[in-house]
């Protein structure tokens, strides 16, 4: 019984929250354009299911494309920063400076350069999510024990061999940890871009719904983004478990 409670605790809390929400809306007669009741959100979601699916697919697609570009660029930059002190010294301050810029402020620029619609959403998703990947890959590469480096140098290993056989596998758990952060950021990026400059995507749908005071539909958008984000997060965890099971020995033991 206690095991069952433990497994379902999160669901129970979420359900209780929804009940409180529903009851407050009904008891205090909160107008729908301020806070719609969960049942009403469900109803609207069903009513606009086709539009929601279309826009959700657009957002998911731009997010995933941006995310994959971020993985490729993040790994390449991370390897460059993590394996050469010259690159580290010259690039790292720049990267940190770049990362401290609020990306929302850059979106208008991205729109000027790349137009409206899908491309700026992909670019924003990429720009906002690649930084944690760079930092983690670089950190992971640096975590190789100095003794191991000495062993490899004495064996005459090339830089490429060191990277492929030791440093990169060593950095994989760090990479996957950063992917879980990056995928959530990528969703933020594409939705922000859609609210600013697009005629597609959940971001656009929420913006136009709120301008028409269809607050229930705005909530539908929020919930769908949350569901997609959680799903992608879960996929990242599954891939992580498969690729770096050796890093989770305590569970397996």
């Amino acid at each position: 019984m206690s095991g069952f409670i433990k497994r379902t605790r999160a669901w129970l809390v979420a359900f209780a929250l929804l009940v409180v929400w529903e009851l407050s809306c009904r008891l205090f007669h909160i107008p729908e354009f301020i806070l719609p009741a969960p049942t009403r959100i469900l109803e609207v979601t069903w009513q606009f299911r086709n539009e929601l699916a279309l826009h959700a697919f657009q957002t998911l697609m731009t997010t995933i494309v941006g995310f994959f570009i971020a993985i490729v660029v993040g790994i390449l930059l991370g390897v460059a920063v993590g394996s050469s002190s010259a690159v580290y010294d010259s690039l790292y301050p720049l990267l940190i400076g770049f990362n401290s810029i609020p990306k929302v402020a850059v979106v208008p620029l991205i729109v000027i350069w790349t137009g409206i619609g899908t491309i700026p959403a992909i670019v924003t998703a990429f720009v906002i999510s690649f930084f944690p990947i760079v930092v983690n890959v670089a950190t992971g590469l640096a975590s190789v024990e100095p003794e191991m480096r000495d062993v490899l140098r004495i064996l005459g290993a090339t830089r490429y061999e060191m990277l492929r056989k030791v440093s990169f596998p060593r950095a994989l758990p760090y990479l996957f940890a950063s992917l879980k952060v990056a995928i959530t950021l990528a969703f933020i990026g594409s939705v922000v871009s859609e609210t600013i400059a697009s005629n597609y995507g959940i971001g656009f749908l929420m913006l136009s719904a709120s301008s028409r005071f269809q607050v229930a539909l705005v909530f539908s958008g929020v919930i769908i983004i949350a569901i997609m984000s959680i799903a992608m997060f879960a996929i990242c965890i599954q891939v992580e478990r498969r690729m770096v099971s050796w890093a989770y020995r305590s569970q397996a033991a």
Binding site: E145, E147, M148, V151, R153, I154, L155, P169, R170, W246
Partner: peptide, 18 residues
């Protein structure tokens, strides 16, 4: 420079965990 044809072992076994 680093010589070739030597072997090394340290107090820390540094086996690759994967």
């Amino acid at each position: 420079g680093p010589v070739r044809g030597a072997g090394m072992a340290f107090q820390n076994a540094t086996l690759l965990p994967w």
